[in-house]
């Protein structure tokens, strides 16, 4: 896969993308460009297609129409290995987190480094730094089922950024946590954005979006009737 890194070039680009499943169209005429260092909120009612759009953005789904580029490469021309390599540049945080429950938290956070064959020393140094950053140093040897909702979200965020990805996509990252923890997670994501990472958060929590506006310059997008529209004015 080509890894061209032009300053200012879009990291993820969708052009008139549609996605259909089971005979019904879930998304239609979606055009979106994620520029390096940008911060996006994706909002809309439950079932509007926020998760589907995020899955398109990390190559888990392929559009049924239109063009989707990941790091300037058309997704349809990418092999399965190319998609895997692209995902190492995209950190993903799910609402249900998805961990390997038989491995300790530290190993789960280091999983992207493990699968990419990075050496153990590098893993250890990155891991210490990250577990401290997300406030989980004392829980590194616990197993995922032993963590609280907030701890799981922070562990998922640490795993998403351990490879120092270009983009972080978060799907309802604050769905299972209290307001205080939501703000803490938001603060971590804003900090990543200040470090130059592209962030896109799918959420239906409008209070979180309002809180974010005091920390970052965010663009708010809404999915309505299968289409994407700018929704900043009413927030």
């Amino acid at each position: 896969m080509k890894r061209r890194r032009c300053k200012g070039a879009a990291v993820i680009e969708l052009e008139n993308v549609a996605y259909s499943y089971g005979g019904g169209e879930l998304l239609s005429e979606i055009s979106l460009t994620l520029q390096p260092g940008s911060f996006h909120f994706l909002t809309g009612p439950s079932g509007a297609g926020k998760t589907t759009l995020l899955k398109l953005c990390y190559g888990a789904l392929v559009p049924t129409a239109g063009h989707l580029s990941l790091f300037e490469t058309e997704v349809r021309s990418m092999t399965r290995d190319d998609i895997a390599l692209a995902r190492r540049r995209i950190g993903v945080v799910h609402q249900d987190c998805q961990f390997l429950d038989h491995l300790p938290v530290a190993d789960n956070i280091a999983l992207p480094l493990t699968v990419s064959g990075r050496d153990t020393l590098e893993q250890e140094s990155n891991l210490k730094e990250l577990t401290a950053w997300v406030g989980l140093s004392h829980r590194a040897h616990a197993f995922p089922p032993e963590l609280s909702g907030g701890e799981r979200q922070r562990a998922a965020l640490a795993r998403a950024v351990i490879m120092s990805p270009d983009v972080v996509l978060a799907d309802e990252p604050t769905g299972n946590v209290d307001w205080e923890m939501s703000l803490r997670l938001l603060h971590l994501l804003a900090e990543l954005n200040r470090m130059g990472k592209t962030i896109m958060i799918a959420t239906h929590d409008l209070a979180l979006i309002r809180a974010a506006k005091t920390q970052v310059q965010a663009r708010v997008l809404r999915i309505s009737n299968r289409r994407l529209q700018l929704a900043g004015a009413d927030l």
Binding site: R80, A84, L85, R87, R88, H94, Q98, P112, V115
Partner: peptide
């Protein structure tokens, strides 16, 4: 399948 899904999410190749 859950393990495979997590491994794919973090960028594991099929061969791995």
């Amino acid at each position: 399948s859950q393990v495979i899904s997590v491994l794919r999410l973090v960028g594991a190749r099929d061969s791995y």
